[in-house]
Structure formats: C-alpha cells, structure tokens
Design a protein around this nucleic acid. Structure first.
Length: 243
DNA sequence: AATGGCCCCAACCGCCGTTTC
DNA sequence: AGAAACGGCGGTTGGGGCCAT
C-alpha cells in the first residue's frame, strides 16, 4: 500500500507548473498540514517535499541576493556561539533559510576553518576580552558621532531603534540610560536588541556568556550579550581578512 | 573542444519532538 | 494514555555551471 503510494510520488527538481500549483494552494490553505495540502493540490509530491519547496524556495519573504557582509558576520558569530544550529541561526536572519545558511557556511567558512585557521578562531573568540571591550567602546562612540553628524542613519535603523527603545524601556535599565544620554545604537546593536526583545532570548545561551553567580537581573545579562557580540564583531573584518 | 575538479545550492533522508485524534 | 500523523532539524547527496588545464 505504502509502496504504491511511494511509487506515484514525484521526486527531483520541481517543474514550473508544480511551483505555481503549490503557491496557489499554500495561499489558499496556509503554511500547514502539508500532507493534506499535497493530496488536495494533486501534486504528486510528499507533504514534506512541498513544505521544503515552499520554505526554501517559493516563500515570497525569502531573500535571493547574495549574503551581505553583515549577514556573513552574523552567521560567523552565531556559528561560533551555537555550532551547527542552522535553523536557530536562520531565525536571526530574516529572509534566510537554514538551508541557505548551512550551504553558505559549508562553502565559505568550513574548509578554511578545518584547514588551518581554527586556532585563529579560538584565539579570536576567546582571548581578547579587555582589549576588544576598549576597542568596542571607542568604535561605538566613533560610530555614534559619525552617524549623528552625517545624518546617515537609514530609516530601517531609525525604526528599529525606536522599536527597541519602546519595547525595552520598561525592562532594560541600561538601554534607558543610553536613551537618556542620546546615544544611538549601531546597526549591529540594534540587531542584538531586536533579538532580545523578539522573545525571551534563550537564556541558556545567554548564560553561557555570563556569570551565573552574579545574581544580576536578566536585563544585565541581555545587555552584556549585546556587548560581547559587538566587541567581537568589530574584530571580524580583521579576522576575516586573515582567512 | 574535451575533461576533470570545484563550487554552489536545491532536494532528499532519517531522526526526533510535538500535535492531533 | 497511546498511536499515528505532522513538522522541524541537521546531515548528505546529486546535478548544473564555471573554470583551469
């Protein structure tokens, strides 16, 4: 029975007609119940295959352009932090799928890392604490000055900043401090703050970076995650050049 | 022009956790 | 409560395209 069913299922590359049909039925039925969607649509594909095709290719929210430098940095950083948690990383990159990120990592970083530079990463990840923190502070201030003087902050960042400030006002004392002093967040910081406000950030991950014993508030933890991120980000270009 | 190697990425597989009945 | 169905995830594969030889 099942064998017969399997026999009739198509595999391999999707045809244009199949794509069109899938889009039509996803629009009608929503992104769920993929098995029944596959049956009802008449597509000779498994529900799983339909889901994959939609999620990784047809979904209009997907970005098709090459990875930006910022995305590259985020991937690199989060992989260093979480390992091969592609879907988790993908959630931090709107418009990108786990598959895209996985492929990107494999083609752009893995070989280099495996070949000879892993030690550099370890060093880069682990042993630059204070120096990087100072660097971060300097660059953060410079960034703030530059962007305020040149009015170079784009609308996205502005909106993001406003959102962050609004959503974090009550919960994040440090951010309130920044707001009070008129200090703007860098794009990377905004991304971090988005993550934080987006959901209860995986505290288990945050805790990896934090001192558990310092019975500090969650707010403190969150902000420090952001700082950690940013301070190392500032070093990324230097590092990536060495790869 | 032929070919072999490499890169890129869509698609599949198998496992496992969650949801539904 | 338990079985079946469903959905998500990470790993792997296969094929097309490009490039150097």
């Amino acid at each position: 029975m099942d064998c017969k069913k399997e026999e009739t299922l198509r595999r391999g590359p999707w045809l244009e007609e199949e794509d069109e049909r899938l889009v039509k039925f996803v629009t009608l039925m929503g992104e769920r119940r993929w098995d029944s969607l596959a049956r009802v649509s008449g597509l000779k594909r498994s529900g799983k295959s339909c889901r994959l095709r939609w999620m990784n290719y047809l979904n209009p929210g997907l970005k098709r352009e090459p990875m930006s430098q910022e995305e590259e940095i985020i991937i690199f950083q989060l992989h260093a932090l979480w390992g091969n948690k592609w879907s988790k990383i993908a959630r931090r990159l709107p418009g990108r799928t786990d598959n895209q990120i996985k492929n990107y990592w494999r083609t752009h970083f893995r070989k280099k890392v495996e070949a000879q530079n892993y030690d550099k990463i370890i060093d880069w990840r682990g042993n630059k604490g204070k120096e990087l923190l100072c660097k971060y502070k300097e660059t953060d201030i410079m960034w703030t000055r530059t962007t305020t003087q040149e009015h170079a902050l784009d609308e996205t960042v502005k909106e993001s900043k406003q959102r962050n400030m609004e959503s974090d006002k009550e919960t994040n004392g440090v951010i309130c401090e920044k707001e009070r002093f008129g200090v703007m967040n860098s794009p990377f910081e905004n991304r971090i703050l988005d993550w934080i406000s987006e959901s209860s950030i995986d505290q288990s991950d945050a805790n990896l970076l934090e001192d558990h014993s310092s019975s500090s508030s969650d707010n403190n933890v969150n902000i420090n995650v952001g700082s950690w991120w940013f301070q190392e980000t500032m070093d990324f270009e230097e590092f990536s050049c060495s790869l």
